[in-house]
Amino acid sequence: MKKYLWPSVKLTVLLLVLLGGLYPLFLSAVAKMAPGKGDGVTVTANGKVVGYENIGQKFTEDKYFWSRPSTADYNAAGSGGSNKAAGNEDYLKVVQERIDTFMAHNPGVKKQDIPAELVTASASGLDPNLSPAAAYVQIARVAKARGISEEKVKQIVDAGIERPVLGLFGPATVNVLKLNVTLDK
């Protein structure tokens, strides 16, 4: 063992410089050319930064599209999900409460039209997206709260839908923050 100790220590130090030092420094330098300059991509409204494109936000007012339930309360100082099992009784009660809350704020919406993602917590607690169906189901409420036509709101949602990659791969999504920024314009 002793024969290998010094080579091990010296090689470790050299690799620390290469992998711990130079590698991330190089990447951070290249990232200056990327969107957001490697600091994360922000969203601005009226010249003010209102959030990060990829980090979801909490919306509780009726005039905004709501994001999904979050166990991190949309504070990206941390992140995480509920880790509740599918059959956990306490968890299922929470889901039922979310359904009731949603129904109360969205009169006229049938229960079978509520997508499950609106009553289940995301993995990161920061999910910035909804599926198109989960946005559509909120149109009536948003339109009423803003006093504009449902047609108009639907147009804004449709314009905000991000299609699957090449139209073929992965789910279609809507970015909730960007959608709400557009609504406020």
Binding site: S82, L92, V95, A116, S122, D127, A133, G170, P171
Partner: peptide, 25 residues
């Protein structure tokens, strides 16, 4: 999707979504 949530009557067109992200599904 989750059969216990299906029983509550909501729609699970995007499958079991607890602990999942919309952009992956």
């Amino acid at each position: 999707g989750n059969p216990a949530i299906a029983q509550m009557g909501v729609q699970q067109a995007t499958g079991a979504m607890e602990g999942k992200e919309v952009r992956f599904g």
